[in-house]
């Protein structure tokens, strides 16, 4: 940032500030503070996930197999790439190259849409299979590759088939295993949903900046707006980097 100040186009100074340095520092510190609140926001969810995962390790392992980890990996790459693009965009803006900025920003937004597209594919598959929590929730365990650890009833050599047991009328033994998987999918949908919401907000923010640059609006004369949006975008990326392994790559207990 400091190196850029040499070459940058003049910035506008808001009335409450003494000089550009103070203004820029305020913006940066403010953005970081905001990101701290965001971390606390997601932190509570990560805590809940950790707690429940340690309580129900088998069910969570079981349930997470239904997620498509390759699509998740694809999304990780998409987001990482977009972080690179947005960093390039900020650099271009610092150097005052507006068309290059627009180019990099366009790529970033494209990546963001790509991410949402992949997420849409995942979600629609999950909705189709009734993995969304609620009264219609339904889960058929997939056989874990090469293992017999599944808590599913059809497994385990030499054991009697439990579903043939004489249960009282109306009793569904699968219900509880379902519940725990539902717990996993609840957390999955809440966390990825909130993250997706952040991606959408990111698209709106970066998109507006793209248009403002295009129409040469004075509010984006300087690079600070984009710098802050870039910080936010990196944060969205980082959340996913934690979210992906913790949700998609649960280890076997």
């Amino acid at each position: 940032m400091s190196s850029a100040q040499l070459e940058v186009a003049p910035q506008r100074l808001a009335h409450q500030f003494e000089d550009i340095d103070q203004q820029n520092e305020c913006y940066i510190v403010g953005m970081w503070t905001f990101l701290v609140t965001e971390i606390m926001f997601f932190g509570a969810l990560f805590l809940a996930l950790t707690v429940y995962r340690s309580v129900y390790p088998n069910s969570f392992f079981e349930a997470h197999l239904a997620l498509n980890k390759w699509l998740g990996l694809l999304n990780t790459f998409i987001l990482l790439t977009s972080s690179f693009f947005v960093a390039m965009g900020v650099r271009a803006k610092m150097l005052g190259q507006n068309s290059a900025t627009q180019f990099w920003l366009g790529l970033t937004i494209l990546c963001a849409f790509g991410f949402l597209g992949v997420k849409y594919v995942e979600y629609s598959a999950e909705f189709r299979e009734h993995h969304f929590p609620g009264p219609n929730f339904h889960f058929v365990a997939t056989q874990p590759p090469g293992g017999d650890l599944s808590a599913n009833s059809q497994v385990a050599s030499g054991q009697p088939n439990i579903s043939s047991r004489d249960f009282p009328a109306g009793y569904h033994p699968q219900q509880l295993e379902l519940h725990k998987r539902q717990l996993f999918f609840s957390l999955y949908f809440v966390m990825t949903g909130l993250h997706g919401l952040h991606v959408i907000i990111g698209i709106l923010v970066l998109g507006s900046i793209w248009f403002l640059i295009r129409y040469k609006h004075p509010s984006v004369d300087d690079y600070m707006t984009l710098e802050l949006a870039g910080l936010y975008w990196h944060f969205v990326d980082i959340v996913w980097i934690f979210l992906y392994p913790l949700v998609y790559l649960i280890g076997r207990q």
Binding site: N58, A156, Q159, I162, Y171, E177, K180
Partner: peptide
């Protein structure tokens, strides 16, 4: 929640018995 704390050496064949007011 039988799978939560299974005694070592036993296969995970048991299903949970929910507690509640619903039938069964």
């Amino acid at each position: 929640f039988p799978q939560k704390q299974r005694i070592s050496g036993w296969p995970p064949t048991m299903e949970g018995y929910p507690v509640g007011n619903a039938a069964g």
